[in-house]
Write a protein that binds this DNA or RNA. Structure first.
Length: 198
DNA sequence: TATAAGATTTACT
DNA sequence: GTAAATCTTATAT
């Protein structure tokens, strides 16, 4: 079962970013097998007013065009010329809201992830936005893919985190955005009973 | 046309 | 801790 269109088209991108925690990101590998991970960290981007967003000021380029698609679309782009970033587009068409998936916990297809990522602790296989794309096999070919299609999609997780298990904080790597960078639009799921860190 | 910097990761000192 | 890798976009010649 996939998350329905209505999950993504909701108007509050912060609520969707929070609700993505605990859900499962699934990618169909070339041989048809499933590779998946549980989402544990997200960041909301609320263009056009959000100075940290690629769509700040209503900017529309070949790269950002995907952000203007309807909710439930994948937005994949390259940073620093070599790392892919996977985002979930939210809201209705022409409203460029998106959520960067910053980390997942490996779930299915772990052997394939290890092969793709090389020798390292399993804990580090997908513990960053560029790492998870490498581990799951996400690249520019998945840009603009429909999240209700059969190449990449989201499924409900077994358990959604309780409020006390969600830590919010400032977004990462966007110091140029001034005050917008300090907004607590980053959401992280922590293990129950652990003390939160920034 | 040229230059700078970015929603990052890795290797090396 | 610092540097290198190297594509896209914005801004300045």
């Amino acid at each position: 079962m996939k998350l329905p269109r209505e999950f993504y088209t909701r108007p509050d991108v912060l609520a969707v970013a929070r609700d993505l925690l605990g859900q499962v990101l699934v990618v169909r590998a070339r041989d048809g097998r499933r590779v998946s991970g549980t989402i544990v960290e997200t960041e909301a981007y609320r263009g056009p007013e959000d100075r940290a967003s690629h769509a700040y000021g209503g900017r529309r380029t070949a790269r950002t065009e995907t952000m203007y698609a309807r909710g439930g679309t994948a937005y994949v782009y390259l940073v620093y010329g070599l790392h892919h970033q996977f985002n979930v587009v939210t809201n209705v068409a022409d409203v460029p809201h998106a959520i960067l998936v910053r980390a997942v916990a490996p779930r299915e297809g772990i052997a394939l992830m290890r092969r793709r990522r090389g020798p390292r602790p399993d804990r580090d296989l997908a513990s960053g936005p560029g790492k998870l794309c490498r581990a799951l096999g996400i690249d520019l070919r998945l840009d603009a893919a429909d999240l209700l299609g059969d190449r990449v999609w989201l499924e409900p997780g077994e358990r959604t985190p309780a409020r006390a298990e969600i830590v919010t904080g400032p977004r990462v790597g966007i110091d140029y955005a001034g005050a917008w960078a300090r907004r607590p639009w980053r959401f992280r799921m922590v293990a129950r009973g652990l003390v939160a860190r920034g």
